[in-house]
Nucleic acid binder design. Structure first.
Lengths: 204, 204
DNA sequence: CCTACCGATCGGTAGG
DNA sequence: CCTACCGATCGGTAGG
């Protein structure tokens, strides 16, 4: 039997994917990333699923909820991946390299989520907005702290740990905007190169 | 006599800045950057200027035109500043350093414009959209070509010039999203550090 | 899953 | 610079 999200049913001459909450989220992910949250109408999501707009409400609570789910899920994963990457790694250079690698890899492999987090995080209401912001902040603080520790111990050499941390984090974030998975470079290759750039930036 | 954009007139107890095309663009710049083009209503721009929405049309042709002006102006300046920075500079390292410095400085000193270009460039219609895209592409190609030249001559050492070019460009772009001009670091200091990061990324 | 419909708001125009 | 108003579209609800 086919998985829910790929089940098909015929509609006259057409064939369409079964509509369920996962399918709605998937379409929302694509359209929010392309046009922005405010630039995407529920009617466009419905059209992509070949249903009428009110029928969307059988699979979601509201447009805002779709965005909230994307933001919460993505920021949770970023923090978890950071922990997984640095866990058990002692050398500061290796820790920064690993943390940068997983962060870059996430942006290469989940560009839609990344674009939405970075563009539309301000479109959600409190208190979720503050929660998402706190999680992003925590990740940035982890990287900044790591670099600061390296500066203080003489392992790294940068003028300002905060500036270096932002430079490293943000070059990774932007991968989501330019990386083409169908191009000549693999996601892992891009991530590895960014891990190397991070070490170079801190003077390794 | 006061300059147009700072002239004031009283309104009962309040005092407000004179409304003219420059004042409308200034408010649009702030609100578009804060909430996005689609997330900003003309009624909000009007309210910030203390006038009614239809009165905006005495100072602009359309909402779209406000965005187009921001995008055209900003992309033109980026290209001009690049040319000015590298003009007469022979050494490839010095060229990359100078090009990165002016690009970073622009994002530190014009964050609203930068945020809008990077978030809302897709919100304008053709043919302007293609023109803006071509100008941004040209600037990226300049940096990429510069790095490629350095790689081929042995002056730089990177695995892939395209990846390095994006990393350098995008860490500069993101300055607009985190830099605080009221903070401890000057715009010039941030720009200088990013110029140094660029050299480190290419192995200098 | 649909049709019918809601109030709110959008960008923009008419005509002073 | 305003009031009055336009058609279009928004997210969402009622009630099958």
């Amino acid at each position: 039997m086919p998985a829910k999200s790929t089940a098909r049913r015929s509609t006259g001459d057409r064939v369409r994917v079964a509509v369920n909450p996962a399918a709605v989220r998937e379409v929302a992910l694509t359209l929010f990333a392309e046009r922005g949250y405010h630039g995407t109408a529920l009617s466009q999501i419905a059209k992509a699923l070949d249903i009428q707009t009110p029928s969307l409400y059988n699979h979601m609570a509201s447009k805002q909820e779709l965005l909230v789910a994307i933001l919460q899920d993505t920021t949770d994963r970023v923090l978890a991946e950071y922990e997984g990457a640095v866990d058990g790694v002692a050398d500061l250079g290796a820790r920064l390299n690993a943390a940068t690698y997983v962060y870059a890899l996430r942006h290469a492999t989940h560009p839609r989520e990344a674009v939405i987090v970075n563009r539309d995080a301000t479109a959600i209401d409190e208190p979720v907005r503050a929660l998402v912001h706190a999680k992003r902040r925590k990740h940035a603080d982890n990287i900044r702290g790591l670099i600061q520790e390296g500066v203080e111990s003489g392992r790294f050499d940068v003028e300002n740990a905060t500036v270096a941390a932002f430079a490293i984090l943000e070059m990774c974030v932007s991968i989501a905007r330019w990386f083409d998975p169908a191009g000549p470079i693999s996601a892992e290759g891009v991530a590895r190169q960014h891990g190397d750039f991070a070490l170079r930036i801190v003077g390794n």
